[in-house]
């Protein structure tokens, strides 16, 4: 696979190559990768990249995907305007 051209996180434009490089450097979980490179911090909150990164970590460490630590699932489920929460709209 062309790792340089394969986008893993579409919100933040993170490639497979960047993810693999961080894993090689010793960043061990989705949470650690997210904090260094912003994968999963965009409007979709990791709906696409979370599981793709989990697969890469599982391959690297030789463990089932189910054993990869998941980040906390945080509100909001989808982007909502501040004005809506403020009660104005």
């Amino acid at each position: 696979m062309q790792t340089k051209e394969t986008i893993v996180c579409r919100c933040e434009d993170i490639t497979l190559e960047e993810i693999k490089s961080l894993i090689d450097q010793g960043y061990r979980t989705i949470d650690e990768i997210k904090r260094v490179i912003r994968a999963g911090m965009g409007p979709c909150q990791g709906r696409t990249c979370r599981m793709l990164i989990a697969q890469e970590l599982a391959k690297y460490y030789g463990i089932p995907v189910g054993e990869v630590l998941m980040p906390t699932f945080r509100p909001t489920v989808r982007p909502v305007k501040l004005g809506t929460f403020a009660g104005g709209e």
């Binding site: 501040l82 009660g87 104005g88």
Partner: peptide, 25 residues
Amino acid sequence: FLEDVARQATTVLPLLKNLRVVRQW
């Protein structure tokens, strides 16, 4: 918290009412 911060922020900085929240922690 979402309601509280949204009210305070849109009072002090009204323009922000159009911004979408993507995550809270």
